[in-house]
Amino acid sequence: STVVFDKTGTLTTASPQVTTCVSLSHGFSEDRILQLAAAVEQGTHHPIATAICRALEGRNLPIIDAEGFVTQTGLGAAAMVDGERVWVGSAEGLSGCGVILSESVLSIIPPGETVVYVTVGDELVGVIGICDRLKSDAKMTVERLQKMGLNVVLLTGDRFSVAEAIASELQLSEGSVLAEVRPEDKAKAIAAYQQQGHRVAMVGDGINDAPALAQADVAIALGTGTDVAIETADIVLMGDALGDVVESIRLSQQTFNKIRQNLFWAFAYNTIGLPMAAGVLLPGFGIVFSPSVAAAFMAFSSVSVVTNSLLLRRQFTPADFPPSIKSQPE
């Protein structure tokens, strides 16, 4: 009844780009801030880390060596760079660095962009804004799921402004957006829907999605996702096309209809055939099945069930979805 989507890498292309970089300290230029952030993020594989390292390459800047890497899931990462502790992460993770955000800092990055903060020691030295695009088939996928009577929910650890911008593009209501949710709390969000009587399918691709995938009634992972997400999932899509989520649900529904049909005809066939084989019609009509005729009818029953199942190949026609942005050749 409810389909919950992760945002980064699932609804979006997972190819974010650095769009804003602002220095908050006279001793640090924008280039230096990107270098520090890339030094910390070079050991991770998150799309945000990839975007920062890609931005550094775009400016032809060298990556600084770092050591003592520490990652806090959903909060950020830290490392020692040139003898100083550099931390890169979200606003929630800043509290662990003893930094309090002012309203002026919060308003630096435009709404709709993911914000990454950079600290050196206990000083906030820079802010980086990162933007990620929706996949080309994301909106159509949401529309078709809604037309099937399913409730679609966006679940993300990103800030509310980013989630609301994505939800606006997908035409999701405010009540269908769960933002700033830490990885360990995503499973609790799924459980909350289940406690309300919903049957929940979770669609994700990352390490942070694994607990939520495990909690969901049906876990759907993109084939391009992480190994842990794929291992946790009940359904693994062959690529990253979101339209396959709709197709997997449609195919499941039609397969279940075939199961119902086969059960109905099997019960009807046996309800009629067994009494006749036992001789119910013998006293009044002189009709009784010989062993060879009964065996032939039994074989015909199996053939009819298998034939009805094979008709699914002709009856199921995949919907026409535009190719995913990520799947298009560059």
Rank of each mutant, 00 (worst) to 15 (best):
W87V: 15
S23W: 06
A189F: 10
F267E: 10
K258H: 12
S292F: 14
L282R: 14
K186V: 04
V228H: 05
K135A: 01
P110R: 13
F28R: 08
K258G: 05
G239D: 04
R144A: 01
S176T: 08
E231V: 11
E330M: 14
R182P: 08
D217A: 03
R59V: 05
G126N: 02
D132Y: 10
C53W: 02
T12V: 07
I63R: 15
V280C: 00
G149A: 10
D240H: 01
E247L: 13
V3N: 03
M140Y: 06
V105P: 08
L75N: 13
I128R: 00
I190L: 10
Q196W: 09
E143F: 10
T224L: 00
G112D: 11
S173A: 11
F160T: 12
A49Y: 02
A38Y: 00
G126Q: 03
I287T: 03
P183K: 09
T271F: 10
N208I: 13
G175Y: 01
V245D: 01
D217V: 04
Q194K: 15
M140C: 06
E174D: 15
M276I: 15
D234Q: 03
P183N: 11
Q261W: 15
F28Q: 11
G284T: 13
V22R: 09
A201E: 07
E57V: 15
L311K: 14
G149V: 13
S252I: 03
V125T: 08
L75I: 13
V153S: 02
V306K: 07
I108R: 09
Q315K: 15
G157R: 03
A38I: 07
G58Q: 09
E247W: 09
Q171T: 04
M140E: 09
P329S: 08
A241F: 06
G284H: 10
